[in-house]
């Protein structure tokens, strides 16, 4: 942890930013880069997570404490997200999932919902226009959730971004919006049911007697069937779930996928979440890793 603090301190020091000597800043920046890479190299000696999920909590509180506009809090939160994404990429974490907007968030003040939607539309369009970030990390972006609940421009932008990054093979970045876990499960049940109906219809068409067999023909719906129809299909379960601002509940986020995930609740608000917090989270995960792995293997054996 001490190492992580020293590696971050140059960026946290406001004096450095103020200095006019470009050379000094350049040297400091590359020194900071070097230290960060060293630290990541040390960290990678232990088991590294493949998938980290974030509940980005605390943007509004951040705005309140800093006495800035609520919307500005969300904007700082977005920069924190991009920074975390880049750090995770450097650490070799392949999957990142974030809880951007809960279905329950629609109950918030309409003006806040509106400004959040505008922010999302703006940021998605920015990503669509300026593809350097996406191309650099060859990032595939997914949107998990009931997109029909979004207003038209945001939905179209999200679908466009998904389609344009679908072929990328690097980091997989999943944005849960508007999402909650119970609706994901119900959606999976609906899809499994529709799939079964189609199978039945094909069988029915092939059967000249028209014998409607709705029982016994197909096996029972299994957990694996539901797994296949979750938004997260094809993506490993998260190794770490980080909820910032010290809150201890999951708030209906990935309940199905987090059976053996290490749940962490660090104190900083989401806009304050930085590299050292991420390093600390991974160190904590490495300590819990033997137990989590053992439980996972035990469960697999019993299946």
């Amino acid at each position: 942890m001490a190492g992580s603090r020293t590696s971050c301190s140059p960026s946290a020091d406001p004096k450095v930013e103020k200095t006019d000597e470009v050379v000094t800043t350049g040297v400091l920046a590359s020194l900071q880069n070097f230290l960060r890479k060293c630290l990541i190299a040390v960290l990678s000696y232990g088991p590294m997570p493949k998938h980290i999920a974030f509940i980005m909590d605390g943007n509004r509180r951040y705005a309140k404490f800093r006495s800035i506009q609520q919307g500005a809090g969300h904007r700082v939160g977005f920069s924190a997200l991009i920074a975390s994404l880049m750090y995770c990429y450097e650490m070799g974490v392949k999957y990142i999932t974030v809880y951007a907007f809960s279905i329950d968030n629609f109950k918030r003040d309409p003006s806040e919902v509106q400004s959040l939607m505008e922010l999302m539309e703006e940021k998605i369009n920015e990503l669509l226009d300026n593809r350097s970030v996406i191309n650099k990390i060859n990032c595939k972006i997914n949107f998990w959730g009931n997109l029909d609940l979004l207003c038209e421009p945001v939905r179209l932008a999200a679908q466009k971004l998904m389609a344009s990054t679908a072929g990328n093979t690097g980091l997989v970045f999943s944005v849960c919006m508007p999402y909650n876990s119970t609706s994901e499960i119900v959606n999976a049940v609906n899809e499994v049911c529709a799939e079964r109906r189609e199978m039945l219809q094909i069988e029915h068409a092939g059967d000249c007697n028209g014998y409607a067999a709705n029982n016994g023909v197909h096996s029972e719906i299994s957990v694996a069937d539901l797994d296949r129809h979750m938004y997260s299909a094809g993506c490993p379960d998260p190794d770490i779930v980080i909820r910032t601002s010290g809150e201890t509940r999951l708030s209906n986020f990935l309940l199905w996928q987090t059976t053996f995930s290490h749940l962490q609740n660090p104190d900083p608000l989401w806009p304050e979440f930085s590299f050292r917090h991420l390093v600390w989270a991974i160190l904590q995960y490495q300590r819990a890793y033997p137990y989590l792995e053992q439980s996972r293997n035990l469960a697999k054996k019993q299946m």
């Binding site: 876990s181 119970t182 509940r249 708030s251 209906n252 309940l255 059976t259 290490h262 819990a288 469960a299």
Partner: peptide
């Protein structure tokens, strides 16, 4: 040993403080 819900029924875990 670790903070992990170990598959507690999802329908009953939505807003539970862990």
């Amino acid at each position: 040993p670790a903070r992990c819900h170990l598959g507690f029924p999802a329908w009953r875990l939505r807003y539970t403080e862990i």
